[in-house]
Amino acid sequence: MSPGPALSVEEARALARRHGLTSLSARPGLGRYLAELWRRRQFVLTLSAAQGAAQYEKNRLGHLWAVFNPALLIVSYFLVFGLLLRTDRGVDNFIAFLSIGVVLFGVTASVLTSGAKAISNNLGLVRALRFPRAALPVSVSLTELYTSWPAFALLLLLTPLTGEALSWHWLLFPVAVLLQMLQLTGLALVLARLVNASRDLANFIPLAVRLMRYTSGVFFSISVFADRFPELVGQVLTYQPFALQLELGRQALLEEHPVTPLSWLVSLGWAVLLLVVGTVVFWRGEGTYGRG
C-alpha cells in the first residue's frame, strides 16, 4: 500500500481546523506565547525552587553557604580595596557601601552567567518536553532570587551594625531588587538566544561580567571618579543599568545616598526596555532552541 495521495495543504488545514487541532509548526503569536508561559507559572516556580535547592544540597553546611559566600567575599574585597588599594575615597560608610555592591553585583553576575546557559544546561528538558522555552531563562532569575535571600538578609542585618539608621526608604530595597531582577531577566532572555545560536559566544560572558564588575562601582564610588571624565562618559558610567542597580540598593539603605527619583525612573525605563526587548528577541527564536 503506497502512502496514497496526500491531502493538499488547504485540505489538511481545513481538516485540522474542523477538529480544533492546534498548530505545532507555526510559532505562536506573542500574546499566546505569553499566555502559555503564564499557564506554566507553577512549572517555572517548581523548577526554580528545585534548582535553587540543589545548589547547596551537595555541601554539608547546605544553605549556610548562601550567607558564608557573600560574607567571605565582602571580607576579601574589603582587605583588597578598602585596606590595600584604598578605593574608599569619598565614601563614609565603606563597609556597607561595599557589601551592597558585592551582594547585588553577585546576583547580576550569577544571572548573566547561568542565563546565557539556560538552554544548553537544560537540554534534557528541552529535548523531552514541549513548553514555552522562555520558562528556562525566567527560572534562572527566580532561582537566583530563591538562593539570594540569605545574602539580602545579611545586608539588612549588617547595614545597621555599620551605624546606618533605620529609615522609611529601606522599604525601597525590595523595589530595587525587583527592578534589578526584571532587567536581568530581560538580559538573560537575550543571552540565552545568542548563546543557543552560537555556543562560542558563551566564552565572552565571563569577560563581559568581569568588565562590568570593575566599571559599575562595586568597590568605588562612580560619582567620585566620574568627575575626571568628559560629561558624556560620566553619564554613561552612572546611568548604565548595572551601576544603577547598585546605586538604587545604596539609596535604599544608606543615608549618604539620598533617594533621587531620576535614578529610579531611569532604572524603571531600563527594566521595561530590557524585558520587552528580551521577550521579543527570545520569542522570535522559539523553535530553534535545543536543535541539532
Partner: peptide, 15 residues
Amino acid sequence: VAGLVPPTSGEVWAD
C-alpha cells in the same frame, strides 16, 4: 510530531 522541533516547511497540527 511531538512539537519539539518545528518543520522547516509544511505544517503539523495536533490535539
